[in-house]
Design a protein around this nucleic acid. Structure first.
Lengths: 121, 121
DNA sequence: CAGTATCCTGAAAGATACTG
DNA sequence: CAGTATCTTTCAGGATACTG
């Protein structure tokens, strides 16, 4: 139950908005989860199924961080633990815009990058 | 003299433009160097002086990667090793646009982030 | 000034087994 | 289905000394 406000738990290196963003969500997985949410995925298993292959413990941890940061909303049907749904908050959608910017840049500037052939699922 | 095309040397996890971008420049330091270049810094020592405190070996390594990726140009006065100048290539400036997008997002969405008080140097 | 070369450590990630 | 709990590994990053 360790209290950690920020992202991957790193210390904030400076007040630079770029450095802070990196310290918050600049890890290997967070933005890919945001991507999946943008694509309409809502469930734990769907994130797990993405081709990059995140581990369950990492996914769980990142979802909690994103929730704590106010980017992700978790709707839990808690007595039936099988209907949990994740979605982007308003704030998370703004982060999603940034993720889309990254996608746009990647598509234009990195050879052999393509949008997911599964069309979002 | 190990040959590594990509960024931090990670394997490409997928063809997703977001994942590839992260694998390429999604580490703790690369985009901060791009930031410094945007701010007009050109010399090794200037990057070292940034408040986040990058180590010499990491800086050296990242500059090489960014150069190999075509984002950074190194103008070396090689017999006088004291006049090396780094700058963004055309391609690097496009990456710079992405970095600015991150800065904008950070400024709007992360409390207590501010632009560098040193005004770019 | 602009790096290289080592050594070392911690934390992030990965693998796996298990649970309500 | 949606996680938790461990254990292990790796490797990116940090510290430091040295060099042309």
């Amino acid at each position: 139950m360790g209290r950690r406000y920020r992202g991957t738990g790193r210390q904030r290196r400076s007040n630079c908005p770029i450095a802070c963003t990196l310290d918050l969500v600049g890890d290997r997985w967070s933005l890919l989860i945001v991507r999946d949410l943008l694509l309409g995925k809502t469930r734990f298993d769907e994130f797990l199924a993405s081709e990059e292959g995140i581990a369950t413990n990492i996914l769980s941890s990142r979802l909690k961080v994103l929730e704590n940061l106010g980017f992700v909303d978790r709707k839990g049907d808690d007595r039936d633990g099988r209907r949990v749904q994740y979605s982007l908050t308003t704030s998370g959608k703004l982060l999603g815009k940034l993720v889309q910017g990254i996608a746009d840049w990647g598509l234009r500037n990195l050879p052999q990058t393509t949008l997911a052939p599964d069309g979002g699922k």
